[in-house]
């Protein structure tokens, strides 16, 4: 088994390889933004580092969001077309789930935690999780795009004391009362490790769907309204 994982849901771009024994190689560019330019060179690089070839990949894993729309599309398109071309199944993971997984796999925090990513336009992508060290994070509410103050309110309602993600970096004030946990961004190394545990959820490339959590920014012009 060799899982190739891709995460382009934020300004960070990462790629990782994992096999049955765990992580093999990883590439992390924390603030490059240039998703299209970075993903395939990174994938090629981790394979070279690991002394493996593209033909040895058995599964593709990709972060399907929520996050930056254009970045997500680059990562997901890359994942599903590689999967189609090499006839591989795809494990989809969510960006907020990955943040919660990082906390669970870190083992230092237990209880409820809020995953919060900056969604731009004065909103956050937010979801509360129940986290036990080493265990699958359990979502306590559906993921949502909310103004920061409503996101903070939602997390308080679910008893979250800690939050993970770049939400509090973008909007410090509404999240002032929370303990800020690492990391800021989801990453492919975590995705690859998670994929090892959720491999039964793999689908064909055609079934992968992105999680936008927001309607496209488009308004029907006045003269075209019925």
């Amino acid at each position: 088994m060799l899982i190739a994982a891709i995460d382009t849901s934020t300004i960070a771009v990462s790629v990782a390889l994992a096999d049955g024994d765990g992580l093999v190689a990883r590439f992390d560019a924390p603030r490059v933004r240039r998703h299209a330019e970075t993903v395939l060179p990174a994938l090629e690089a981790v394979l070279t580092l690991a002394g493996r070839t593209r033909r040895e990949i058995t599964h593709v894993c990709v972060d399907v969001g929520p996050g930056m729309f254009t970045g997500l599309r680059v990562g997901v398109t890359t994942a599903i077309t590689v999967a189609m071309a090499l006839d591989l199944p795809v494990v989809s993971v969510g960006s907020l789930d990955l943040l919660a997984w990082r906390v669970a796999l870190g083992g230092a925090h237990r209880g409820t935690v809020g995953a919060v990513l900056d969604a731009r336009r004065k909103e956050c992508f937010v979801q509360p999780f129940a986290v036990e060290p080493g265990e699958v994070p359990v979502p306590l509410a559906p993921a949502a795009a909310l103004p920061p103050s409503s996101a903070a309110e939602l997390l308080r309602r679910h008893g979250c004391s800690g939050i993970v993600g770049d939400g509090p970096v973008a909007y410090p004030e509404p999240f002032a009362g929370f303990t800020v946990l690492e990391p800021r961004y989801p990453d492919a190394a975590t995705a690859a490790i998670v994929a090892l545990r959720t491999i039964d959820s793999a689908t064909s490339a055609d079934e992968v769907t992105l999680c936008y959590l927001r309607e496209p920014d488009a308004e029907i012009p006045k003269d075209l309204r019925p």
Partner: peptide, 8 residues
Amino acid sequence: SAAKSLAW
């Protein structure tokens, strides 16, 4: 992205 991925 699709074309580069297929070619790769």
